[in-house]
Amino acid sequence: MITFLSQPWPWYVSGPAIALILAILLFSGKTFGFSANLSNICSMMGLGKRIDYFKFDWKKQQWNLLFLAGSVIGGYIAAHYLQSNQPISLSKSTIEDLKKMNIPFDGNMEPASIFNWSYLFTGRGLLLFLGGGFLIGFGTRYAGGCTSGHAISGLSALQLPSLIAVIGFFIGGLFTTFILFPFIFK
C-alpha cells in the first residue's frame, strides 16, 4: 500500500482526490476554502478589536484551523514516508526556459537553489517569499477565496464570480511569469 501510494500520481488520480476533500467537507456541513484561515488567524490574534473585518467569532471556524494543522502534518507524512526517488516529470521546455533564467531543474519538487534560508536574505528571495506571500494574503482576501474556494468549490457549484476570480489568477500568474520573472532573474 505504502509503495503503491509512494509512486508519482498521475493527474487524473490527483484531481478526483482533491474533489474527495470537497466531498468530505460538504458532507460535514462545511465549505472548502483554505485562505479563509488567513482571516481566522488574524481574528484569533485579536485584530478584531482594531479592524472590523476581523471582528467575527473565529471559534466557529476552528474546524478550518484544525484542517490547516492537519495539512502541515500531511505534508510531513508525505515528504517523509511517501516520497518516490524519481525526479518529477517536468516538461523539457519548462526546464529549458528556467535554465535561461539561471534556475536549474534539480528533480525535486521545489528548486533547492531558491527554497532555502540563505536565498531568502537576498533581494530576490525577499521579493519571492515575503513579497509573494503579501500578494497572496492581500489578493485572496480581496477576491474572497483562493484555488480551493474559487477554482474548486466555486467552479464546482458553477459560480460565475469564481470563474472571474480564476481568470484573475491567470492574469496575475502570467504577468509574474512573463513580465516580472525576466526582469527579476535577468
Binding site: 483554505f34 485562505s35 484561515n37 488567513l38 521545489e110 521579493l127 519571492l128 517569499f129 513579497g131 509573494g132 506571500g133 503579501f134 500578494l135 497572496i136 494574503g137 492581500f138 489578493g139 485572496t140 482576501r141 480581496y142 477576491a143 474572497g144 483562493c146 484555488t147 480551493s148 474559487h150 464570480p161 469564481s162 472571474i164 476570480a165 480564476v166 481568470i167 484573475g168 489568477f169 491567470f170 492574469i171 496575475g172 500568474g173 502570467l174 504577468f175 509574474t176 511569469t177 516580472l180 520573472f181
Partner: peptide, 19 residues
C-alpha cells in the same frame, strides 16, 4: 474577483504556492 484574483495570481507564480 478580478482585481483580487490578479493580485493573488502574481503571488501564486512568485512563490509557486497557493495558501
Amino acid at each position: 474577483y478580478l482585481i483580487g484574483g490578479s493580485i493573488f495570481g502574481m503571488g501564486w507564480a512568485l512563490t509557486g504556492a497557493c495558501p
